[in-house]
Simulated scan of single mutants.
Amino acid sequence: MTLQNILVAVGPKDSERADELAEAVLEVAQPAAATVHLTHVFTPGEFEEATDRLNFESSTTADPDAVAQRHETIRALIGALEDAGIEYAVHGRVGDHAEKIVELAGELDADRVVVGGRKRSPSGKAVFGSIAQDVMLESPCPVTFVKGA
């Protein structure tokens, strides 16, 4: 299987594991010369908060791609990809996290999705759900899970 498009889904707590995400992505993207699609999905509330924090004029006119590009983890990953000479694109979406990640993977004809996550108790998963788990179950392609602390 040739890898041409790798989607990396970045969440609000992934800044703690940016190095691990970069390492996992570079491990598969470099040998394949794949394009990496850095993605951040915001809930409507998160998007409004981010546009306020980042001094965009309005959350109704702000471009989700531009807001995502200013995310701390996305910027760290861009640096790693540029240092390695890997082509990339940044995508921002607003909506349900897992749903939008899976939807974008299909739109991009992604060959791999990379998601971060952390260990959770069974009751924690039942109460709070798991974006990574939903992506793994619904993704149109293989998913690489990068475990955090």
Rank of each mutant, 00 (worst) to 15 (best):
F128T: 04
F145W: 11
A18C: 04
M136G: 03
L21V: 05
N5R: 15
T39I: 03
A66V: 02
A126S: 04
A89H: 12
E107D: 15
A29W: 06
H40F: 11
G106P: 07
V135H: 01
D83P: 05
E138W: 02
A32P: 04
A66E: 14
R53D: 14
A126R: 10
A62I: 02
S58G: 08
D52G: 11
A9C: 06
Q133Y: 02
T51V: 10
G95C: 05
Q30V: 15
P44S: 07
I101S: 04
E57Q: 12
A29F: 08
T60Y: 05
I6Y: 05
F56N: 01
H91F: 06
Q69M: 10
G11I: 04
R118H: 12
V113H: 04
P12K: 14
S15G: 10
E103T: 13
D65C: 01
L38D: 08
T51A: 05
R75M: 12
R70M: 13
P122A: 03
T61Y: 00
P44R: 09
A18L: 03
A149D: 14
L3F: 09
V113T: 11
E49R: 14
A76P: 03
G148L: 06
G106Y: 07
D83V: 05
E48H: 13
E46N: 10
D83T: 14
N5C: 11
H40T: 14
G85I: 10
E99S: 13
Q133F: 01
R17K: 13
H37F: 03
V10S: 03
T144E: 02
N55T: 10
T39A: 10
V8N: 00
F128E: 02
T61E: 12
V8K: 03
D134K: 14
R120Y: 07
T39N: 09
D14E: 13
R75D: 11
D63G: 00
S58C: 08
G45H: 12
P64V: 00
L38M: 10
A50S: 14
E99L: 11
P44N: 08
A80E: 13
A126H: 02
H37N: 10
A66H: 07
L81A: 12
R120D: 04
Q69R: 14
Q30E: 15
L7H: 06
Q4E: 14
N5Q: 15
I78N: 08
G148S: 11
E87D: 15
D19S: 13
R120W: 05
N55W: 09
D134V: 01
R17V: 15
H97C: 09
G45T: 11
V25W: 03
A105T: 07
